[in-house]
Computed example of a mutant assay.
Amino acid sequence: MNAYTKKEMMVISAARMITDRDIVFCGTGISMLAAVAAKHIYAPKSTIFFETGAIDSALEHLPLAVSDSRVMTGSAAFCSLVEAFSFMQNKKTSARIVGIIGAAQIDPYGNLNSTMIGDYGDVKQRFPGSGGACDLASFVNTILAFMKLEKRKFVEQLDYLTSPGWRPMGKSRETCGLRPQGPKAVITDMGIMKFDKTTHRMYLDQY
């Protein structure tokens, strides 16, 4: 019997991809766990940046969500939501930001759907939507995506494009006016996917 769960394995796999001086932009849930694990184990000089505006918090206790008041404890700065998202568009800071996001669907080029399942005119299931994921996927250099390895999640064509990957709508990122760098890796409960440097199509890297 393994001494760890699949979710814990995903958290540590993501944490290992974070290095010192990275600015880790994370939301609620497993992405927060990965950021905190990296800070405490692999990258003590990394900076955790919560989408609600807390920068480099002490994190003596794991917050329940990004809106938890504990994200402000001992923080180096606390800014507004507008200021927080402007860091992603700043060329100097965006190059150091690692964004950790998830979604309901992903296609072979790392495009993500976190909006809905079904046809837009006949929605079967709705989800919270982008949050900050689209901004991260559009502007920062390093994106890590968490996905459970299921056939319904890994699809050839998304029901809805929420966050751009390497080839949004079949076009290059530059054509769409985005930063050239697409997602770095997709971390699943069965292995880690990366993207071919030429075709930008997803492949199995580790399992």
Rank of each mutant, 00 (worst) to 15 (best):
R167G: 01
R201E: 15
L158S: 07
F25L: 09
R70V: 12
D22R: 14
T52G: 06
I100N: 07
M169R: 12
L178P: 03
P63V: 05
R70F: 14
V66N: 04
K45H: 15
K92Q: 12
T199M: 04
T47P: 02
T142D: 06
P44F: 11
D119F: 11
W166E: 07
R16C: 09
I192V: 15
I48W: 07
A43E: 05
G102I: 08
A77Y: 13
C79F: 14
T19E: 15
K7F: 13
V11Q: 10
D189A: 12
M116P: 03
A84G: 11
G129N: 09
I117H: 02
S130Q: 13
L161P: 07
A77I: 05
Y120A: 14
M1Y: 12
R126D: 03
I100F: 13
G165K: 03
S114C: 08
Y207H: 07
G27A: 08
G74V: 08
E83K: 15
F50S: 10
N90G: 02
P128W: 01
F78Y: 15
G102T: 13
S114P: 01
L112Y: 04
A145W: 06
M193G: 08
R96E: 04
M72E: 14
I106T: 07
P168G: 06
S172L: 04
S94T: 11
R179G: 07
V98H: 09
Q157P: 00
S86I: 01
T142P: 00
P164N: 02
E156F: 09
P63F: 11
F195C: 07
D68I: 11
R70A: 11
T93V: 14
S94A: 15
I48C: 03
L136V: 07
A3K: 10
G29K: 06
H200V: 01
S75M: 15
A15K: 01
S163A: 15
C26R: 04
G170S: 12
G170H: 13
S86Y: 02
S69P: 10
K6S: 13
E51L: 15
P44K: 09
A38S: 15
A58Q: 11
F139D: 10
I143N: 03
M9A: 14
